[in-house]
């Protein structure tokens, strides 16, 4: 591709191959972002899509943006997302059942319609030839961008800076909670606990009869029901507690049976067995 002939009709075969492979990945990533039940999975899929997009930026000659996409977008912003997801509850899966009547069908209809219209619009515009960024990037992509930002787009740049500052302050204001009263002392807190009748002594340990010591297994009460107090509240909220009560009871029964066999106690039929003192009554 010579410098005189800026216009071109096709890219290299390598780029085409890359486009079709990575484009497929990007679309799958986007679909997974939408359809994954857990927010953390969605975030990871989105990160993958963004990395693919970064590669496409690079392929399109936007070297600076490609790097920024990876470093700032995927590296910083998506991590911020992950932080918030962790804060809210990383494993809380959304129910995929739609609650608003007709919302899903309308969304699908609008989406398909909008997509078809966009694709039709692009197809309708006769974009057969393209210029490429060779000449624009002649002095280096970053230098080219910088000269534009600090000359032609300097006002927009400054205003965007102001916007960022404002956003940072705004986020602080939104999440900051003003303390309106004196913090309670430990004595006051313990008095309050006594007054409210909360559970005072240390919580009972999880696990069943020392056979299970995992924190996600509730301890069993003498009648075989699991005790709420033995497991972490957060785990319970996430639905990550394993209930082993029936299993444990079965295990116990099997153990007793084995012990009887070992001790060669035979199972005695109830109707034939009568203790002498009981029979005499």
């Amino acid at each position: 591709m010579s410098a005189q002939h800026l216009a071109a009709y096709t890219t290299s075969t390598g780029e085409a191959f890359q486009f079709w492979v990575l484009g497929t990945v990007a679309v799958i990533g986007a679909l997974c972002t939408v359809f994954m039940r857990k927010a953390v999975h969605s975030a990871l899929c989105l990160a993958g899509t963004m990395i693919v997009l970064a590669v496409f930026y690079l392929a399109n000659g936007a070297y600076f943006l490609g790097i920024v996409q990876i470093v700032v977008y995927t590296g910083a912003i998506m991590m911020l997302f992950l932080f918030v997801v962790m804060l809210v509850g990383v494993t809380a899966a959304d129910s995929l059942k739609e609650t608003i009547k007709g919302q899903r069908w309308l969304a699908l209809l609008c989406g398909i319609g909008f997509g078809v219209l966009l694709l039709a619009g692009i197809g309708n515009a006769s974009l057969k030839e393209f210029n490429g960024t060779g000449q624009a990037n002649a002095n280096g992509n970053v230098e080219g961008l910088a000269s534009l930002i600090f000359t032609k787009y300097v006002f927009a740049f400054e205003i965007t800076g102001a916007l960022l500052i404002t956003a940072a302050v705004g986020a602080m204001v939104l999440t900051h909670r003003e303390r309106t009263e004196r913090a309670k002392t430990q004595r006051e807190l313990s008095e309050q606990r006594i007054r409210e009748g909360t559970y005072i002594p240390p919580l009972p340990a999880p696990g069943v009869y020392a056979r299970h010591n995992a924190v996600d297994i509730a301890g069993l009460l003498p009648d075989g029901t699991p005790s709420e107090l033995t497991v972490n509240k957060t785990l319970r909220a996430r639905g990550q507690i394993r209930d082993v009560s029936t299993e444990a009871l079965n295990d116990l029964r099997a153990l007793e049976q084995r012990a009887e066999e070992r001790l060669e106690r035979r199972a005695i039929e109830p109707e034939t067995f009568k203790r002498p003192e009981e029979a005499s009554k």
Binding site: V27, A30, T33, T49, L108, G111, I112, F114, L119
Partner: peptide
Amino acid sequence: ALLFTIGAT
């Protein structure tokens, strides 16, 4: 366009 539509949906 495809990614945009998927995102909007």
